[in-house]
Design a binder for these strands. Structure first.
Lengths: 239, 239
DNA sequence: GTCTATATACCGATAGAC
DNA sequence: GTCTATCGGTATATAGAC
């Protein structure tokens, strides 16, 4: 297993982030293919990956428009150009398709977020880096995040629990940063958990209410700068 | 038309708000009945209202669990105790049921929010009152708000447009308050629209991620106090 | 006003030709 | 590896008895 072991990654600009993240749809689908070879009937990797890219892309597209439950597999078949039979070579049920997408999304979040926070940096820098990394990631993988957000309630009990754990883990990143800053006398926070919660709510708004920001022509970098300044105004110790 | 003409309503505590809001399910359903008498076949008001209460309550309950699309009308029939035939005496299609619920929710929001903001108050008080009123309202009508939030994308074009307008109108309330405070030298805000947007995101989190707050035993008054202090720390002019 | 029974269409999933 | 044809089940919606 490759362990990047907290090598600092600056990601000063969104473009830099995009390149460093190396999150092409294709790579993600290759990983999914390799991990699900027991349930995927197709054996030739190039063919399988090509079709998985198509299937996931089309699923996300249709689900964002009208929801995963509302999208029938006939819709997916028509929009992707693959037949019903071909689709069922890549997953054994519609629920498995949902799960495959969710699992991968959670892992990417975890990997990228920890990779972009350098524990040797001071808390204020860490806070900025975390906010930027989180927003840039959700921008690059917007369909995935919106889908995950909207479809969590349709998961089975086991998967839903994992989804909740993932959410709380993301919040914990901010609780840790705030705690450290508090103890170093840089931040002044009355309630760590609630503060982390509202930070997360602001970040979430970027992909949940994306139509609002794109119609107002607010770029992800604009929004990151704003959230950072807003949060800092609220938590930085008055000097 | 009854016009409350901005009579100040303090709503200092959640309990007071609850009483003043007078938003019993029954009253709301009576209103819906009177406005939809063309599509509701039942003519006796007491019977119709009683069943509408049942239908809406059950619909919200089932939809929150698994989504409106996933809930079949057979599910609704079973859970409400009304037959399929009886259900169709109250709406002409499943989509109309969705629309009836959405329309009413939007109207309530608009009415209550404007009723609880006194334009003669100073901006700082208005900001506090708006945040409290918004949170208290979403607490009282949690199922309605969660439902509206999750099902907006399933509306037809016309209804979705109205939903967007409603969201932007709510944001405008905060933009106006912030603008006034800015011009009076009380607030210092770099971007009015983005600030209003993140305030709204924090308010939304109360009903979107409700499980988180209830598991942590945070009351709506705790949360209101926290959001007010967080926002004030960010926008109040340093003295 | 409420029920049961049913029309019609589409759903997820699979078998078997190619 | 991909297709078409089709299975059994269930969806929305309605007709007609009571």
């Amino acid at each position: 297993m490759m362990e990047s072991a907290h090598v600092a990654m600056p990601a000063d600009s969104f473009e830099m982030f995009k390149q460093m993240a190396l999150l092409s749809m294709e790579e993600i689908c290759r990983e999914i293919f390799r991990e699900n070879q027991q349930s995927i009937k197709i054996k030739k990797e190039p063919v399988a990956v090509k079709n998985l890219v198509n299937i996931f892309h089309t699923t996300l597209k249709l689900s964002i428009e009208k929801g995963f439950q509302t999208m029938s597999l006939r819709d997916l078949s028509k929009a992707s150009g693959l037949s019903m039979g071909a689709l069922y070579s890549y997953f054994s049920s519609k629920d498995e398709l949902l799960e495959m997408i969710q699992v991968q999304g959670r892992r990417i979040t975890k990997t990228i977020l920890s990779r972009h926070i350098d524990p040797s940096e001071p808390p204020q820098e860490k806070l900025r880096a975390a906010i930027r990394a989180h927003l840039f990631l959700t921008e690059v993988l917007y369909p995935w995040f919106y889908f995950s957000f909207m479809e969590t309630k349709n998961l089975d009990k086991v998967q839903r629990k994992k989804s909740i754990e993932s959410e709380l883990a993301t919040e914990q990143v901010y609780i840790n940063i705030l705690t450290e800053g508090q103890s170093k006398g840089i931040f002044s926070v009355t309630d760590l958990t609630l503060t982390a919660g509202v930070i997360k709510a602001m970040l979430q708004d970027w992909y949940v209410k994306r139509w609002k920001y794109s119609r107002r022509q607010v770029s992800v970098e604009d929004y990151a700068d704003f959230v950072i300044s807003f949060v800092e105004a609220a938590v930085l110790m008055a000097t």
